Amino acid sequence: MDLRRLRYLVVVAEEGHITRAAERLGIQQPPLTRQIRALEEELGVRLFERLPRGMRLTDAGRAVVGEAQAILERAGRLPDLAARAARGERGRLAVGYTSSGAFHPFVAQQIRAFRAASPGVLLALAEDGTPELVRGLEEERLDAAFVRSGGTHGSDLLVEPVLEEPMVAALPTGHPLARLKSVALAALAEETFVFYRRPTGPGLHDAIVAACLRAGFSPMVGQEAPRMSSTLGLVAAGLGVSIVPASMQRMNVEGVAFVPFGGDPGLTAPLLLVSRRRGRSAILERFRAQVKAAA
């Protein structure tokens, strides 16, 4: 469908007179008349009744004019739409995060800030384990992901450090150490640990084991949970102690006390932003720039 003909149709309908419409459009009357007739032939209906002193829309003409106005309006928005999409202000962004990352205020703050700054972008969010998030990036189901481990990702992924936070001991509230203001990591040497499964969070899992070895013991693992959040449920049930990022305290799990470590056990939990190195959209670049500036 020729947009020019649709514009001619709308102007003739608004003027109700072919001569006035031609003057308004800045063209001669005969070419305008031919264009209107060509449009009628294309649609297979009469759009106007020819009157002695003007033109009047038929029922079909009124229906077509309404649609033509909407089409022209949308077509007029295309340049702005294209420019906004090129600037990363329109489109879709899929962001994933681990269960522990979901409780860090930084992640929620960045998602809220991006939604406020880019209302034309549809944000799709997904919570999952690190391996699943990495697979989502590789299969292009996700554009970016907040994870805790950066050591196992392929060369096609860009891993950018965002921040680090301390880790704390998670103890059942009835545990003798739960009343202390701080605890030495070595004080947990005889405890049974509740860990999240290593394939789910290999970075934090290995960092905890390494810190325990530096403190002079190998942790005794009694239970493993699929997610860090479910780890705290097992701690609350009295099945052991755990070590979690400090931001997990925001869960306020009944029956769990969080105690910081004294000294410097070398236990920190990184927060990383992972994205593909290739094929990054303008939307993703805006999101990365915002996250890096905030960090």
Rank of each mutant, 00 (worst) to 15 (best):
A113D: 10
A85D: 01
D156T: 14
A294K: 09
G16D: 08
R34W: 04
G150S: 08
A21Y: 06
G263K: 08
A145I: 05
V64G: 05
L122M: 14
F258H: 14
A116E: 15
V12M: 07
G174E: 14
E67Y: 12
S218R: 15
P79W: 11
R92A: 05
G266D: 08
L57R: 04
A295K: 04
L232D: 02
V235C: 11
V65W: 06
H104A: 08
P199D: 04
A22L: 12
G151D: 15
G76Y: 02
E73L: 13
T58A: 11
A225Y: 03
A70F: 07
D128I: 00
S155H: 13
V121T: 07
G91Q: 07
I208T: 03
A60M: 09
L204P: 04
A21H: 10
F195V: 03
A236F: 13
L57Q: 07
E89S: 09
A68L: 08
L163A: 12
G61D: 04
G66F: 01
V10S: 12
D2N: 15
S155L: 15
V253E: 13
P161F: 03
S149F: 04
L177F: 10
P79M: 09
P270H: 00
E224A: 13
T130F: 00
E140D: 15
R179Q: 13
T58K: 10
A178W: 02
Q69R: 15
R90H: 12
R179D: 11
E165K: 05
D156F: 00
A126N: 10
E139D: 13
L239A: 15
V10L: 10
M251H: 05
A293E: 13
S99D: 14
V12P: 03
P202I: 05
P245A: 11
V244T: 10
R286C: 01
G266E: 06
P202W: 01
R135Y: 06
A85F: 02
D128N: 12
S275A: 13
G16K: 08
T98I: 00
V12N: 03
G203C: 01
L177D: 01
E160K: 08
E49N: 06
E224F: 08
L204D: 11
L6M: 10
E132H: 06
A70W: 08
V241A: 11
R276Y: 02
G91C: 07
Q223L: 15
A294F: 08
M1F: 10
R24L: 14
P245K: 05
V12H: 07
V107K: 00
G120N: 06
Y97Q: 08
L185K: 03
L188P: 01
V64R: 11
V256C: 09
G150R: 08
Q249I: 07
R197V: 15
L123H: 10
F258R: 02
V134I: 14
E285S: 08
V64C: 05
